[in-house]
């Protein structure tokens, strides 16, 4: 499964999804090509209100 597919499955369709894979930020351009492997740790964040 790619990161793009994971986001789709998680129903994250907002403008910005911020993704880290195994502690490394993943560029948005490569969401559709980065294949996740068993044991990968994925963090999904987003922009929120803040000052």
């Amino acid at each position: 499964m790619t990161i793009a597919q994971l986001l789709e499955r998680l129903e994250i369709t907002s403008r910005y999804a911020l993704v880290e894979r195994n502690g490394c930020p993943v560029p948005r351009e490569s969401f559709s090509v980065v294949e996740l492997a068993a044991g990968d740790e994925v963090v999904v964040a987003r922009p929120v209100a803040g000052g």
Binding site: L10, S14, R15, Y16, V44, A45, R46, P47, G51
Partner: peptide
């Protein structure tokens, strides 16, 4: 300014994107 926070899959607004 915007802040960056983890998506909270349990909260109803957890996936909302303020930039929209």
């Amino acid at each position: 300014t915007v802040a960056v926070r983890l998506v909270d899959f349990d909260a109803p607004t957890g996936k909302a994107d303020i930039t929209e």
